[in-house]
């Protein structure tokens, strides 16, 4: 056990090429997914928060429920979509990093949208009268609030990133865990552990946790600085 931990540390410390390729691909996939999911999720959440339409409550319930979407189910859905016989089969994306980005994006859009919806709705209660008095409503009002609480929304984005970088099921199914092509941290950990190569699995585990910690610490610092600066 101790040997495995030391082995893992050695891989991290010696900048083992195989390990860092896997780390780099993981980050590229999850960060891309977060960018797309943020671009989709924030406006979606804000629109639901500010909009007044029939079935709004039902939409919110469904959105909140989708936060708990099982990654393997999303993986299966995207697999069917991209498989050769599927509607998007011609694109030839299955078992490539773009397929993994698509799956993770679908997985975390509901998380970012639902958390943004809550944050914007709370802020909207404070802003609505003032903005309507200034003649601002609808889309413009939603965008104003979204921009004004942008630092609080970091939490929503981070929750999405945490989910994306931690999940195994979706990237395993649509990526196929192909060595050097679609192998990411979580799928490698799962595979190496079952093979008994604990040092690599542990090394990756340490890197994964360190990255998540560093990102959260950075976000916390940005929020605090913004709070001091803008009130």
């Amino acid at each position: 056990m101790l040997d495995a931990i030391l082995g893992g540390l050695r891989l991290v410390a010696t900048l083992d090429l195989r390990l860092w390729e896997i780390v780099a691909l993981s980050l590229a996939v999850s960060l891309s997914a977060v960018v797309f999911a943020t671009l989709l999720g924030l406006p979606l959440g804000a629109a639901i928060a500010v909009g007044r339409f029939r079935g709004r409550q039902a939409v919110i319930v469904v959105l909140n429920a989708l936060m708990g979407l099982p990654p393997v189910v999303v993986g299966l859905f995207v697999y069917l979509l991209l498989s050769r016989a599927g509607p998007l089969g011609e694109l030839g994306l299955l078992f490539t990093p773009p397929a993994m980005v698509i799956a993770q994006t679908i997985l975390i859009v509901p998380i970012i949208a639902a958390l943004a919806r809550q944050a914007v709705e709370d802020a909207w209660r404070e802003y609505e009268e003032q903005l309507r008095s200034l003649g601002v409503q609808g889309l413009r009002g939603a965008l104003t609030v979204l921009w004004d609480i942008r630092f609080s929304l970091l939490t929503a984005v981070l929750a999405g990133l945490g989910r994306a970088s931690a999940e195994v099921g979706a990237v395993m199914i649509v990526g196929g865990n192909i060595d050097g092509v679609t192998r990411v941290m979580t799928t490698t950990i799962a595979l190496e552990t079952s093979k008994g190569d604990l040092p690599l699995a542990l090394g990756l585990g340490m890197v994964l946790i360190a990255i998540v910690l560093a990102l959260n610490a950075a976000a916390q610092m940005i929020r605090d600085a913004a709070q001091r600066r803008y009130g």
Binding site: E126, Y127, E129, Q130, L131, S133, G135, T144, D148, I149, Y230, G231
Partner: peptide, 15 residues
């Protein structure tokens, strides 16, 4: 546009 209102507690944007 030709009327304005000032509230008891004004809401300011973070700018």
């Amino acid at each position: 546009r030709r009327q304005a209102m000032v509230f008891q507690r004004p809401v300011m944007l973070r700018r």
